[in-house]
Design a binder for these strands. Structure first.
Lengths: 112, 112
DNA sequence: GCAACACTTCTACCGAATGTAGAAAAGCTG
DNA sequence: CAGCTTTTCTACATTCGGTAGAAGTGTTGC
């Protein structure tokens, strides 16, 4: 389970893109919408509960960072979806067939 | 967006497994839980709205069927997730690295 | 054609998740 | 300690999904 709401996703995107620990205030400023800091704090707390964000509590503005990179997270999601398949190989086959030729070529390279 | 609730998923599984059009009553009977038919009708209507189910309105017990096979649907989900990636090739590479050796072998075969 | 039954639609309620933020509490700094 | 910054608590609104009764519509046997 790692379904994210709209705002939660925006915050994650920010954390992923910044690649560093950010304070709630920094997140708040860098978001497009004009939200109260408490709102951002609530969202960060929820993301922490979901395990998507780690909080450094030893500094005074607490600092938050994504626990996984964006790519790692995406791969987790992919595996979650694949886990619902009855016939994994069949699904993989179709899936591979659905990506671009360039991507298929990259896969060939990777698979050796 | 095609996130499914528990019951919605059960109903889809049933439709996928039966592979045919079913009436609300049939779905109801074949479900493990003991639900009112109206409940099943509500769920089927919601699934129809989500585009996951097609309804034949010309027969009297309306008949419902999945619009895509289970595999097609899973692949769609995979593509949806992949669509959120910035660097698709990187994600694909990691993803492929996360499947079993057997599956990787199957992919090699498929990719020719 | 109508009564009785089958089926569908409407409406509603509940709980959980998410967006939103004020009020209150806690920590820091001069 | 006073005042500011930051965090926590609490709360409310909305939406989604599970659940189903009441009311409406279609069908069928007579």
């Amino acid at each position: 389970m790692a379904s994210l709401g709209e705002l939660e996703r925006s915050v994650m995107t920010l954390l992923w893109e910044s690649g560093q620990q950010l304070s709630a205030n920094e997140v708040c400023e860098q978001l497009d919408e004009d939200l109260a800091v408490t709102t951002v704090l609530t969202v960060l707390a929820r993301l922490e509960k979901k395990g998507m964000v780690e909080r450094e509590r030893s500094t005074r503005p607490h600092r938050y960072a994504a626990t996984a990179t964006r790519e790692e997270h995406t791969v987790e999601m992919l595996n979650e979806v694949l886990g619902t398949a009855l016939d994994r190989e069949a699904v993989l086959a179709r899936f591979i067939g659905s990506v671009s030729e360039n991507e298929a070529a990259a896969l060939r390279r990777i698979l050796g």
